[in-house]
Amino acid sequence: MSYGGDYNQGGGGGGGGFYAGSQGGTQASPGGSESRRNRSSETLRPVTIKQILEARQEVGDGPFMIDSVELGLLTFVGRVQGVTEQATNITYVLDDGTGTLDVKQWIDADSPSDESAQNLNDKYVRVLGQLKSFSNKRHVGAHRIRAVEDYNEVQYHFLETVAVHLRLTRGPPEQFTGGVGGVKQQDTEMGGMGNTSSTSRLPPGLSDNARKMFLQIKDVTENEGIHVNVVKMKSGVPDHLATDAITELLDLGVIFTTMDEWHFAPMDLL
C-alpha cells in the first residue's frame, strides 16, 4: 500500500492524483508541494455544470477549486439550449441536467468554421475549456466544442466525473494502491488474505483513506475511544479528506462515536 499513500501524504493535496493515479509514470515524478500547482493546472478534469457553478476561489482572484483541488482545463457535456452569434464570439447555453452555463468560443477569423454554430442547437456537445468569471457571472471559455455522436459518451462522462470526484474526496480505491496485488487483492479480500488481513472485517470497495484511518481506530480499547485528530495524525490522512473517510466508516457501521462526535471506537464484530 505504498505508492498512492505516500503520494497523498507528501503532496499534501491528496487529490491532483487521480489523473496521474492510474498511470504510474506521472506519479513517480518528484511530488514536492511547489509542483502541485503546475501539475494540477495541467490536468483535464471531467465535471458537471453543478460542480462548475459551485467551484470556489479561496482568494479573491485566485484559481477556482472543486473538491479542494485547483481546476485547470475542464471537460463536460451538455445539451445546447441556445446559440448567440456575435462578431467576435459565439455563446452557447448548455444544460446537462445539473445546471445551465454559458460557454463562449472566440471566432478565429483566419480559419472560419465550415459548419454553422446553429447546427449544434438542441444537441449534446462536449466542451473542453477553462472556467472564467467576468463581473461575477461565470462562463467557460471553450478551446473546443463538438457534437457528441454517441449518447453513451454522455453517460460515460457522468461516470468518469463521479469516479474523479470520489478519488479526490476519498482517495484512490484499494485495488489501485497495492504495489503487486492489483485486482487479485480485491478478489481475496473476503478471505482476508494478503496484506489486508488486519482489515479483513472491512468490505471491498472501501477507500484507501478510510482503511488507513480504520487501522488506527480498530485496536482502541478505551471506553472513550480515540480522538479524530489522533487518528488523522497517525494515519496521515489529510484534513480535507478525513471527514469523508470517517463518514464512510460510520455508514458501514464498523466504527461508532463515543462521548462526543470527535471520539470514535471500533464496533466489535467478532
Binding site: 458537471t48 453543478k50 441536467g97 445539473t98 463521479v162 470526484h165
Partner: peptide
C-alpha cells in the same frame, strides 16, 4: 450514482 453521490448532480 445520481442519487448516491447527489452532491455532483
Amino acid at each position: 450514482v445520481n442519487h448516491r453521490y447527489k452532491q455532483v448532480f
